[in-house]
Each structure stands twice: as C-alpha cells, then as structure tokens.
Design a protein around this nucleic acid. Structure first.
Lengths: 108, 108
DNA sequence: CTTATATATCAATTTTTTTTGATTTAACAA
DNA sequence: TTGTTAAATCAAAAAAAATTGATATATAAG
C-alpha cells in the first residue's frame, strides 16, 4: 500500500506568505506587541499604508495572522496556533508572544 | 532591555524555497525515495531537465536538500536536519524519510 | 449632513521569479 | 580522440508578485 501523496497547495500559500523579510518582520513585531493597529505598524516600519495593507492581507489570507475591527481601527495579531502547527519550536520561539515565552515551554 | 530584532534574510530564503508546490513535491519525493538522481526525478515529474535543475538549485541554495555527485550522476536527498530545525513536527513527518517514520518519534 | 480618519482596494508600473530552448561542462565509453 | 550521457548554466520570454498613487468605504465626530 502506498502513502497518499499530500497536496501542497495550502502549504505553498503559507510559505509564500512567510517568504518575505518584511512580512516576517511584521509577524515578529505582532508577537512583540500583541494586537496592533495598522497605523502603528505604519509608523514602526515607515512604510506606506497601501503597501502595508497589501502585506497584511497576504498574511491574513494565509491564516498566519488575525484581524479584529473596532470602529475604524483594525487590529492585527499573530495566529499563534497556526504558526505553532507550521514551524519548528525554535522558530515558534521567535514568533511567540512575549508573555508566553517565560512559561513551561521546553524551548525559548 | 530590549530583545535584539532577529534578521530574517536567511528565513526568507528558506521559505521562498518552500513557497512552491513543485518544490514541495520534490522534497516529498526525496523523502519517500531517498537519494535520487536528476534523471529519475525528471521521469517522476515529467518535467524538463533545465526546469528541474532550476528548482533543485533553489532548494539546494536554501540548504533544504543535499547533493552528491557520482560520475556524471548527481544524487539529491533531503537535508533532514535542516528541515527539522525549520518545520513543525507535523510537517517534518511529511518530509521525513520513510525508514525513520516507524521509529521512536512522538509524531507520525 | 459634512468632514475627518483609518484602512481597503484598484489600476498601472516595476521588479522578481519562472519557463523555455539552446549551449556548456564534465565524466565516461568505444 | 570521438561520441554519448547527465546535468548545470545562460539568455530571452512569460508569468507572478510587489510597489505606487489614487480612489473607495466605513466609522466616527462636529
């Protein structure tokens, strides 16, 4: 009996989203800061609004980050569960929220 | 004291290499078969020689696979250590050599 | 209602990546 | 040496992704 060949479309999408230094920095910043609105991210990265929106959408579509709307503000945060399912412990430690780092994890 | 911001260039490169369904399939096939020469991969994927070479080079440059030359043949294989350092256990199981799957791993 | 603010979306352009076919390199066999 | 095979590399073309500036949408405030 042969193992069924997995379909990699979904992973392609997720890795594409991660395949950009700017987006990795966004992910890292979201971990460090938790829920952050677009305007703050704009300041942090000194990047135009539409460009930032574009990159956030790619991460969002890959389900690596989450969005919460409050009035006119949109707050983004890391989707830690999804990241943990995808990346190694070592890497998850980079993309793990500050408050969770000191805990009972084997790594970090 | 603030955490030093990691540089993500290296990860960008690795994720770029993974951000392609064809290359993920190559990785999977290498796990299933172990050391495999380019000509066999050409048959398996029904893809042109130069195209395959191109994709193998990207994976090789990202250090996700390894190359061994014997005469005119080049054999490629997964770089399991590197993959384990990068990806979650769940994903490593997809990209783990058949002979290592039945063992004492917590997953698979 | 009018205005202002936050953010998403769109269309055109630029940049990057991928594909293709041809050429090159290197090892081997006759 | 000559011919053959495996595989890398190159240059041009095609396709995909990113950037830019403008516009649209939606909420909130006056």
């Amino acid at each position: 009996m042969e193992a069924v060949k997995p379909t990699f479309q979904l992973y392609e999408k997720k890795f594409k989203a991660l395949a950009d230094e700017k987006r990795l920095e966004i992910m890292y910043e979201l971990c460090q800061r938790g829920k952050t609105c677009v305007c703050d991210l704009m300041e942090i990265f000194g990047v135009s609004q539409s460009k930032l929106s574009y990159h956030l959408k790619i991460l969002l579509d890959a389900n690596l980050i989450e969005k919460e709307t409050k009035g006119t503000w949109n707050y983004y945060d890391i989707n830690e569960k999804e990241v943990n399912n995808l990346l190694s412990e070592e890497l998850c430690c980079i993309f793990r929220k500050v408050e969770n780092k000191a805990g009972n994890n084997s790594c970090c």
